[in-house]
Design a protein around this nucleic acid. Sequence first.
DNA 1: TTGAAAGCGCTAACAG
DNA 2: CTGTTAGCGCTTTCAA
Lengths: 339, 339
Amino acid sequence: MKRATQAKRTTIYDLAELAGTSASAVSAVLNGNWRKRRISSQLAERITRLAEEQGYALNMQASVLRRERSKIIGMIVPKYDNRYFGSIVEQFETLARKRGLFPIVTCTRRDPELEIEAARAMLSYQVDCLIATGATDPDRIGDLCGAAGVRTVNLDLPGSCAPSVISDNFGGALELTRRVLANCEKEFGERFPLLFIGGRGTDHNTSERIRGFRAAHAEANVEVDETLILPCGYAPEKAESAMQQLAEGGPALPRGMFVNSTISLEGVMRWVRRSGHYAKGVPHLGCFDWDPFVAMLGDHIEMVRQDVPGMLHAVFEIIDSGTAEPKVVHIPPIVEKIG
Amino acid sequence: MKRATQAKRTTIYDLAELAGTSASAVSAVLNGNWRKRRISSQLAERITRLAEEQGYALNMQASVLRRERSKIIGMIVPKYDNRYFGSIVEQFETLARKRGLFPIVTCTRRDPELEIEAARAMLSYQVDCLIATGATDPDRIGDLCGAAGVRTVNLDLPGSCAPSVISDNFGGALELTRRVLANCEKEFGERFPLLFIGGRGTDHNTSERIRGFRAAHAEANVEVDETLILPCGYAPEKAESAMQQLAEGGPALPRGMFVNSTISLEGVMRWVRRSGHYAKGVPHLGCFDWDPFVAMLGDHIEMVRQDVPGMLHAVFEIIDSGTAEPKVVHIPPIVEKIG
DNA sequence: TTGAAAGCGCTAACAG
DNA sequence: CTGTTAGCGCTTTCAA
């Protein structure tokens, strides 16, 4: 099975020599542009066969260097540890390939430095277009790309210098909060303010979700408890320690909450189980984001599932149409009740 | 914020002209090789500043084309829909970057065609090395890479023409089965054969896990029920319908099972809930793979967590050392009891 | 100390 | 119908 590493890879020149023709003919044939170059199908045949035999593989670096457009499309994404980003990446790759583009994806672990580092790297690789997903500073990336003449689309978190595709965070949060409020009233016979936990207070999504959260409270005539608004970050540990502090601070813990992302939920649930504070009854939960196992955790959880296919179709529609105005497209998420 | 797309990107020639020097000097400075070229720090300074001002970005295609190593490292991965592969990719990117390599990852959705298509694409992009993760046909990829003189490492699923890093599937399955068997005996006061469900019967991991499963039964003096060995594939739907068929076929469903991957577990759990067959008591489960929310599903579940950091360190050790012999490195997974 | 020049593999005029 | 040629932007001898 093992083969000595060849000193050199087969090039179109090697093929040309073997076929007794020129490199440009080989290039044309292998690119499928031989019809318009009116190369004899005989020659084309021969070249194709030789390429096959020799295990010829195009050198993309050389090809891209020469061409106008690279047909490489990049995406940066914060994490791979949840279904939301996972399916975004999968969809992205699929749709990119369907268009004959080569997708390159990189994960920046919510690190602002790494984020722009990654964007720079992608520009170096001559991406034709860059999707910035959940970026902490989309405009920084937008500027970088703008300067290089590369198109950008923001996904999940909006920016102001390129088109953005995001969920309808306000609407989703409004509906989710309504449901949790209703579930609480049903079980406890009274209305009370919920806890909001998780996410960065500074990001657009979180603030829109808090707005929806407030609106639902207002609708229900419940006054929001400001000490219960805790956008402590996304990491599980952050949510865990925020819960801990809350427990230490006051006497009664809220019996209903809005958890901003499955990742934060991981921390919340961990704390709920470890601390034993909810031993006599689990709280009613609403989670902004979907996960199949969370859906099985019990009937006290409602989830919002962001419409990933819808979002990515919108992204590629923007790319295909060539729009560059910084408009924001809102995609309604799906609020599901899990049984 | 918006900027007109520049007609042309700044090159080292532009910089050279602006600095009143040559392209080679610029190149040397920007690569940090100016010490050994003994370029005056004055000139170096000037060039660096200009590059900054002009927003110069290296053209990697040109650079890679000229160099003999690309410093690009590729990985193909089956799916992004579970924690195992998600963390593999994250670790991979981190370790690659730490070595000054540019990671490119692509997801092949367990599609054998796409798998080799992706491998070919990566070779075209001149990867120095390719990691084939959970590939359906690692040797096919190995051959492709071998022919191109590119190193490969198999991860998760072993191949025979390149080094492989995999979990100790036998050991993990043995211990996991032991525990489920013991849990069942504790609760039901008797020993009985478990169900094995999920995974492809043809892949190495699944067959090793079945071997471990059998060994644990033998140890416990329980005869394996051959009709309960169901490697039905990884997709949730597959597991779901396998459960359905099992229920239709026989009278009593097993009260204990070994589920091969969280993905299969998703289908199993869905069926368990929907069918109502386990209404009077959930079965004891063992899951080969870890997920934080599964861990919260109850005390009737045991999980095996594969040692992703350990596996990736082994992968990069192989890469760093330059080994190419097709040995298999086994990394012990962690069997955790969740409370 | 620095610059000139060759060439990586490929594409796309242009000239037969 | 086919070949020759001129670069794409960069790295790297080799000369000065």
